[in-house]
Write a protein that binds this DNA or RNA. Structure first.
Lengths: 348, 348
DNA sequence: GTTAGCACTCGGTTAGATAGAGTGCTAAAA
DNA sequence: TTTTAGCACTCTATCTAACCGAGTGCTAAC
């Protein structure tokens, strides 16, 4: 759908203005700041129509208009300029990411910090690729009538173990079967390679050990989650307070809590590689997470060889998408450069 | 100074009550909740005296009394019960810290999380001992007329380098002298072993390289700072929001910003080992950090062999010192146990 | 030294009243 | 048919005044 040039002009003006002022924008204000050669009455009419279309909203009668999520979406997709970032920003990024490749985590942290700093929004970054360890060997044994100890040896020689409890008495033969099944079917695989079919086969082979199988899978999922958490970095959460939408304690609390649980960020949907410039923008209720219903996420992909990682920003829907997109894209591209320039050293 | 039994009783009652209610406590309230067999008028008189002594404060005339920092101090030193923690807490701690020794950082994180969880205050933890790497070798060379590259090889084979600039042209001979001095005097030492005398000797030996020496020291200090940051863990910052004193956005912001900079916590004064139970309490303005002027820090020491580490809590001065002290002390002692039980594994 | 009683203080809450910004609508102008 | 000027209307934010009630300090009696 296209709105026609004047509606677009007005929508763009409203969004731009609101991004700057954080106040509902009135028809007269548009006249002052943008050179629209129509009267305020006309603008009012257009704004009313834009509202019925769902692109603008009114906090209450006799207030100015505010972009709706759909309005932001239209703005981002159709109206937003593609202007690059200022040379000072570019220099800032260049110099900040010059020598930071001691370790992967370090670079991530630095890039996140930088992104947060220049955009004034909290930033997060995910390591390039989830190169999870694969399973090497499973050992299960009963430690007493009701408890089973599950030991997993990973290919990297890390050993993890957990006591797995279940209401029913342990059946030795079932346990042996389950152990054999796990070893035969999972050895050499990573957690994320366990497909539903594979699980079915496991279940069929484990017979009476089904309850334990389930517990073991939970254990593996937890391990996986732990690994994942370590690979997320969050920086600059405090920038939240710079934005008036988070002057409400409850809101700030909710968002900060969300940000402080790395699991949340690790499981954010990741951008389609097809998105323009490699930057994807998810606006308000487009987010699945409840805590992000009135927030926007801007995320960029960076590639390291065949792996890809992500760096993103989280802020109010009233974000300067244009500036933020350009900055984030540049940071991401810079990260790629740094990775390429440096022979990839694994352990610090 | 001792106050006499009745004043003490009243002071204790005020503090206990205020810790629970977060509201200024009135003379009548004390009658209801504590079995003081005097009238409210007497209590008022006593409270007035306690106020002139600086142990209580009045937010305004016609409001109840609130403990002053000095009042808390007296409470903590003289009045506070030494009651241990509940068995449920003990069990909680026991079970949470049972199997968490995969890595040092991990245990720290877990202990911090636990401490924050059971006390409802943000917690931090420092690794046992700063076992910084020692210097192995210094290499300095001029890369152009005005810039010097400084390379430090650490005993752990890590290599750090930095470009060190100074307004004056590089003098080769001075550089050679400085390099020799650094290598002879610092090899085998850690940063924290560099004494002022040592620095003097370095300076004497480096002659015309003094400006570079200074820059090199800054570099080393930075490295040291980086190392230190990695060894601090902060958990449960969000518990801040549970306390009414942080309903003010500005206050919450300030404190959270403080907490999110690990350098702040790494440089907190550490408890005297002599303190009772190994727990030290620093109340409000007793803190040196500006951000902590109306906050209290409770910290405990734990020992691992000859090394010692710290775990602490940060919250409003209106803290349940008694409960919190007991809990923290128990967590710290539990950490010691876990460390001892497990052969100390260095790298994860 | 303690207590009852009372006047006084002060913050918090409520209720109007007011101002002002901004809209929607209508009728005239282009 | 579209645009514009004008105006009535709406709603929020702010200010003021009044009031309530909790709590104190002081005085005088116990």
């Amino acid at each position: 759908m296209s709105l026609g040039p004047r509606k677009e002009q007005i929508l763009k003006a409203v969004v731009d203005q609101y991004i700057r002022s954080a106040e509902p924008v009135a028809s007269k204000q548009l006249l002052e700041h943008w050179a629209l050669n129509v009267s305020s009455a006309t603008i009012r009419n257009e704004m009313a129509e834009l509202e019925t279309m769902g692109l603008l909203e009114q906090p209450h009668t006799s207030a100015g208009r505010v972009p709706s999520p759909a309005g932001y979406r239209y703005y981002v997709d159709q109206l937003m300029g593609k202007t690059g970032l200022s040379t000072s920003d570019r220099e800032h990024i260049d110099s900040a990411l010059k020598h930071k490749v001691e370790s992967l985590e370090r670079l991530l942290a630095e890039a996140g910090k930088l992104a947060a700093e220049i955009t004034r929004h909290p930033a997060y970054a995910l390591t390039p690729t989830q190169r999870y360890d694969s399973f090497e060997r499973f050992v299960l044994f009963a430690s007493d009538l009701l408890t089973v100890v599950c030991v997993v040896v990973m290919a990297g020689q890390q050993v993890n173990s957990r006591v797995v409890r279940h209401g029913e008495p342990v059946i030795e033969s079932a346990l042996a079967q389950l152990t054999a099944a796990l070893n035969e079917l999972l050895t050499g695989l990573r957690y994320d390679q366990i497909t539903p079919e594979l699980y079915d086969r496991l279940e069929k082979r484990s017979l009476d050990g089904r309850a334990y199988l389930r517990a073991v899978m939970v254990f593996l999922a937890d391990l996986h989650g732990q690994e994942e958490q370590l690979r997320v970095v969050v920086e600059g959460s405090m920038h939240l307070f710079e934005h008036p939408e988070y002057r409400d304690i409850a809101k700030a609390h909710r968002m900060l809590s969300y940000l402080s649980d790395k699991k949340n960020l690790a499981t954010l949907p990741q951008p389609y590689p097809t998105a323009s410039r490699g930057v994807e923008i998810v606006i308000g209720p487009e987010n699945v997470a409840a805590a992000l219903q009135d927030a926007s996420v801007v995320m960029a992909t960076y590639h390291v060889g065949e792996m890809q990682g992500f760096i993103g920003l989280i802020g109010p829907t009233r974000m300067d998408y244009q500036a933020v997109t350009a900055k984030l894209a540049y940071v991401a591209s810079k990260m790629e450069q740094v990775f390429q320039g440096q022979p990839q050293e694994e352990e610090k």
